[in-house]
Structures are given as structure tokens and as C-alpha cells.
Amino acid sequence: MQIFLADASAFMPFNPQTYFSHTIDTAQQIESFNAERRISVAFRPVSGLTPSLTFEGGQSSSLSLWQTTSRSGFLTVPNDDLEVFTVRFVTDGSMVRRDHREQHIGRPGHAMMVSFDAMRSEEASADFAAVSGTVTRTALAAAHTFLEKPKRQGHLPRFEPVVDATGLPLQNLMRTMKRVVGQLREGVQTSDLVFPLLEEIMVYRLLTAWPREDLDRVPSGPVGPQPIKRAKAYIDGHLAEKILLSDVASAAGVGVRRLQLVFKGELGKTPVQFILERRLDRVRADLKHANDDGASIGTIATRWGFTHMGDFGRRYRKRFGEVPSVTRRG
């Protein structure tokens, strides 16, 4: 798992793990897990109940993402004092988050976004389930700069701690988080060029979807043809490499949010859709000449960054109306 920032080594609050999965069924397992200090919180069982807790996910040096289920409920207290934000969508049960000055309650239909360094404890109810993510303040501020180009570098908006999560933007964010956890479970290869875009989009969706008090104004009005020309030229020149929206926006000379608006306005699609379509076009062109070099469909798909064949096949059929093998035979 990788964060999209250029220098993640400047802040290393997490121990990078491509994928982790833990199941805790006894008090002794809780004690052993806490002693190893694998994560930034310590677990406590609910008094009088046999613990039942499972969580899985992955983390880079600046971003952690995981899903949790628990029949018994549990308590957590921080192990470390980290400058990070935790985002949580509770899908079953409830969670009480106690900070030094106030408390917040997460339940289905609502989402929480709170600063980790203010936390005293969290208490999950019985039959609890949630998808959660933690991102460093530095990474979030850098993404905000790429997205909106605020007047102050390193500035972060003031986010609402508990919000209604039934609207489409936050539902999309939750689905993206779940999808990323699912792909971590399946395994992400270094040659996968789709996953880094998905991870980046997740952070941008967080910034754009979450209600806040001091939203920076996004420049409005038309722009000249040069930004989109520069963006398309950069994309076409780097299709076989990892492409991030922050890179495309820098090449175009605009912020990421402005880049997204320009693509939707001029092309009727997002930059990510444009990138994936361009890569699928390259796959199709190679398939038509595959008999010349004997390359398999999987080899050609991987050449252009598609390592999950099921996902690749669905995208290919949607774009061209046929399966890759038909293209190759034709």
C-alpha cells in the first residue's frame, strides 16, 4: 500500500504493512496483541464478556485503512500521541469516542472524523462493524494543497466531527474505502497502476465530501485550452507508469479540483476515467497485434497496469462491447 505523496518518509507514524488481519477471541490474546504494539491503540475487553474482535486492512507510512467487526464490543485507548485524523463509518452497532473536552457518537447513517491526538478512549458496542481510515495531518494538508491550491501552504479546513453520511458523496467515500480494503485482501502487485489512483481518489473524496466550516473558494469560469492539452499530453506520455492526479494537475498548471472540473466540463468524464480509457485503448491496440509477439492477454493487460483480470475484463467489455479474446482473434 502506498500513499501518493512525494516524500512520505518525512512522517512515519505507522509501520507499513501491505495487509494485516487479526482475530482476537480471548483476554490472553488481547494482552499478547497489546504487548506487541502493532498498532497505535491498545484494546480492552468489555467487563464480563469474552472478547470477540476481528479487523483487517493495510497501512502505508501515512495512511491506514481497515474494517472491524466485533460481537462482544471493546474499548481502545491510545498507545501514541499522533497528529492524525481518523475517519469512521459505523455500519452496525455504535461507538462512543471520548476526547479530552467532549465526546462523539458514531452510528449507522453517520460518520466521524476526529483528531487522534485529542482522544482519551473509544468504546464499541456489541455487534459492532465499521470501516475506518487514519491519515496524517501532513498528508491531508499536502492533498488539500494539490486539490485546491489554498492561499496558505499546509493549511487544513476545520472539519465537522460527526456528519450525516447518507448523502451520495460520503456514501461513495465509504464504498471506496471498502473497495480498497478488499483489494488489499486480494493482494496488490507493484505493477498495478489502477490501485494508486484509487487510493489517491479516496483521500480527495474525503476532502471534497466532508462538511467543513471554511471551504476555500474554487476558481470559477472558463479556462483556456492549454491546461487540458497539457494534462492529456502528460497522461499519454506516462500511461505505462504510475500516474497520480497530483502529477497531472501539476503538468497542467492547475489544482486537482480544477483539473476535475475542466475534464468534466470539456470531456464529460473524470481524469481517472480518461486515464483508464486511454490504457484500455493501448491494450486493445496491442491485442490486435498480439499474434506478432505471442504475448498473452494477461501479459498485455499487465503491461498497461491492469493486474486484476476480473476487473480488467469488466472494464474492457464495458468500453468495447466484447471480451479481450474476441479482439485478439479478430
Rank of each mutant, 00 (worst) to 15 (best):
V323Y: 07
T136V: 04
A231S: 05
A252Q: 03
R284D: 12
F55E: 04
A129T: 00
S132V: 01
H110K: 07
R37F: 14
L173W: 03
R278P: 04
D25P: 01
I24M: 02
L5I: 14
H100M: 13
R328P: 03
V248R: 05
Y316V: 07
G221F: 02
L206T: 10
R97W: 15
S191F: 01
P13R: 00
H144G: 10
G106I: 07
R284K: 11
V77D: 01
T138N: 11
V181C: 11
H110A: 14
L173D: 00
G106A: 06
I30A: 00
I3F: 08
V256N: 03
T166F: 02
T166M: 01
I24C: 09
D281P: 00
P211T: 05
Q67V: 04
A126E: 15
A130T: 07
L206Q: 08
A129W: 02
S47N: 12
S70P: 07
V254K: 04
A143C: 13
A8E: 14
F274N: 13
L140W: 00
A252P: 00
R120N: 11
L168R: 02
E266S: 09
R175V: 08
F306I: 00
R328I: 01
T50S: 15
L197S: 13
M113F: 07
F55V: 01
E123F: 06
E186F: 09
R137Q: 13
S125C: 02
L75D: 12
A240H: 05
E266M: 05
D192Q: 03
G182F: 06
R120P: 04
F116M: 10
V90N: 02
K151S: 13
Q171F: 05
F320N: 05
H308K: 10
G93R: 06
A142D: 10
K318W: 04
P169C: 08
A141Q: 04
S191D: 12
F4C: 12
A130C: 12
N172Q: 11
S32C: 02
A126Y: 06
D25A: 13
T307L: 05
G58Q: 02
D311I: 08
P161V: 04
L168H: 06
L287T: 02
R38L: 09
S220W: 03
G237C: 09
K149Q: 09
R317E: 14
V90K: 01
V262D: 15
D81K: 09
F274V: 13
G313Q: 11
F85D: 02
N291Y: 12
E213K: 14
S70E: 09
I3G: 15
A6R: 13
R38S: 11
P51W: 10
R120A: 11
E213S: 15
L287F: 00
K178N: 15
T91C: 02
R329F: 10
V194G: 08
S52E: 08
N172T: 10
